[in-house]
Simulated scan of single mutants.
Amino acid sequence: MTLTFKLDPVIDPALRDGVLTLWTDVVNAGGAVGFVPPVTVDDIRPEWLGRLTELSEGRTRLLVGYDEQGAVAATAFLTRNGHRLMKHWIWLYVVMVHPHHQGKGYGRELMAAAEDAARTFEGIEAIRLTCRGGTGVDRFYASCGYKEVGRVPDAIRVAPGDDREDIMMLLPLH
């Protein structure tokens, strides 16, 4: 069993609902994708709408992994860097695999598909991402070839008295 990936899928109600459900389920399972649990689809929706704007403007691309039933099982957003001196790398963010599918190797498949997708951007030499300290996900990204390039202490406040590092990682594409 493997995922089927689609870069720049048609945004329709089924995709919208699939991404919103995935994002909600990932957060509520403890995933560090911009929120802390508990959340509802309505909590996630404004962030999704912001991503739709970026998609429509061509600044961001969406990578979706579908499971064998055709359901949204994984996603990642790839965004061009807007700074004129940093246009040679892109951001990878909101990297998610549905909790029901974790442990099947889908995360590695998603990261490989994201790397392939990044290579379709003209002039891109590296992928940059950040992750929340204290989750262990930095070890996963390192196992996918990403190198830690910095940490900002106490940059992410998940609750009063619970501050986490913002870990920056980079994957050169040469």
Rank of each mutant, 00 (worst) to 15 (best):
L20H: 12
T79G: 11
G123L: 09
W91S: 06
D162Q: 15
R119G: 10
G65M: 04
L7A: 04
R16E: 15
T60D: 05
V72W: 00
D8H: 13
A14R: 12
D162R: 12
P46C: 05
R59Q: 11
A118T: 06
D154L: 07
T75E: 09
N28R: 02
F77M: 14
N28H: 05
V33R: 11
A118S: 14
M1A: 11
W89Y: 07
D162M: 12
R151K: 11
L49E: 15
G18K: 00
W23D: 05
V72N: 00
E47V: 12
R128L: 10
I11D: 07
A76E: 04
D162E: 15
A118Q: 02
D42G: 11
R80N: 10
L55N: 11
D17Q: 14
M168W: 06
D43E: 03
P160N: 12
A32H: 00
A32K: 00
T120M: 09
L49I: 08
G31K: 01
P37C: 06
V41A: 13
Y146C: 05
W89A: 00
K6G: 03
V27F: 07
M169I: 01
E122W: 07
L171H: 06
G82C: 03
P160S: 14
P153R: 13
T120D: 13
G133E: 00
P38I: 04
G31I: 05
L22M: 08
G150P: 04
V19F: 04
R128E: 12
A126V: 04
L85S: 12
R108H: 15
T135K: 07
A112C: 06
P9W: 06
V97A: 01
M96S: 03
L49D: 15
G58E: 07
G105Q: 10
G133W: 00
A155L: 06
R132G: 02
V36K: 02
G58K: 06
I156Q: 01
G34N: 09
I44D: 00
G107R: 00
A112D: 14
L63F: 08
M111A: 03
I90A: 05
A155D: 04
R45W: 09
H88P: 02
F77G: 07
H100R: 11
H83P: 02
E47N: 09
V94E: 01
M111E: 01
F121I: 06
A74I: 05
L110Y: 05
A112L: 12
V39D: 01
L22N: 02
D163P: 03
G123Q: 12
V158E: 10
N28K: 04
L15W: 01
A74E: 08
G145F: 07
A76M: 10
P46W: 03
E54Q: 07
K104Q: 14
V41D: 11
T2N: 13
E57V: 09
I127Y: 13
R16P: 01
G70F: 13
E122F: 02
R132V: 14
L170D: 10
A14S: 14
G145A: 08
V36A: 11
T135H: 05
T24K: 08
L85D: 15
E68Q: 12
D17L: 08
H174L: 03
V95C: 14
C144I: 06
R80H: 13
G103W: 03
A74Q: 06
K87Q: 15
D17Y: 03
A155F: 09
I127P: 10
I156C: 03
H98S: 06
